[in-house]
Design a protein around this nucleic acid. Structure first.
Lengths: 157, 157
DNA sequence: TATTGTTATACTCTATAACTATA
DNA sequence: TATAGTTATAGAGTATAACAATA
């Protein structure tokens, strides 16, 4: 009957399931607004700022070509605009429209509720500690990725 | 100068970056053994067990067709075999070969080292709490995904 | 020469659908 | 009728490459 040792905690699987599960919830929750989690993320980080597409891509961990696609969507939906930078004529500043600000506001409500539900299993006192720990992990060893022959693609957002 | 409120913690982005970052490290670390994180995960969970492909797929959060592909790889590499179940003639039991056991042992060393490095930014006392919290989150609200018209694909593994 | 943004396209990879065999 | 596994293929979506404009 001696089955082998109960597989030790699989951090990779845990994080993968958590990220995918949350992404799923965000996708489901935001469909009522007709916006993707990625578009919402870009929009919410651009609001009230004067960021170029590449700066925004960096903040959202997106490839620059993926940012182009995202901006195309946002512009077509009238939620954001590309404006010429006054200091660098190559760059485009991402400006959020009024409709975009409205969208972010409504999106944030949904997103905040989902975050709250997802963190629900943790006692109040532990939530901040968890998010803080996760932040430190992301900014730690993972911030300087090991070079890898076969590039590892970003997950869907 | 009043830039808008510093975007509140973006749990989605954090988890996405953590999962992707770790996946990247695992991929880079395991290339020396010629095995993918997914194959290692399947192998490590099958070892010493008598699990069918679909049971294993459930444990590893894989689609059954993805499991077929993975098993094809593992079998071709001589790391695992499909055996007929003695109780259900439809099912295939995943058996890990000796070479497979050796591979898991070597892989676990690498994976354990990477986990240790990734959790490095956390003080010793917090690591277990973090993993525990993450586990509860995954087993909480995220365990019963909200129905969603547009199915959200699993991330790459 | 390096960088921003764009376009077009190639590639990776998961999921769907259809099917067989068995329960 | 439902499930395990397989095959083939569609489909989604990110990354690569090449290019134009500018720094």
């Amino acid at each position: 009957m001696a089955t082998t040792a109960p597989t030790e905690t699989d951090l990779g699987l845990l994080l993968s399931r958590a990220a995918h599960g949350l992404h799923h919830e965000l996708t489901a929750g935001l469909t009522s607004l007709g916006i993707s989690p990625r578009a919402h993320c870009v929009l919410s980080k651009a609001i009230g700022q004067e960021l170029t597409q590449s700066q925004l891509a960096g903040l959202c961990a997106l490839d620059k070509t993926t940012m182009v696609v995202t901006m195309d969507e946002l512009e077509k939906a009238g939620l954001a605009e590309r404006r010429l930078s006054s200091t660098d004529r190559r760059a485009r500043i991402v400006a959020v429209t009024e409709a975009g600000e409205e969208m972010v506001a409504r999106g944030q409500e949904i997103v905040a509720r989902i975050y709250d539900e997802v963190l629900g299993p943790l006692p109040d006192g532990e939530r901040a500690a968890f998010v803080d720990a996760l932040t430190r992990i992301v900014e730690g060893r993972l911030a300087e990725p090991t070079p890898c022959e076969r590039p590892v693609r970003r997950p869907r957002m």
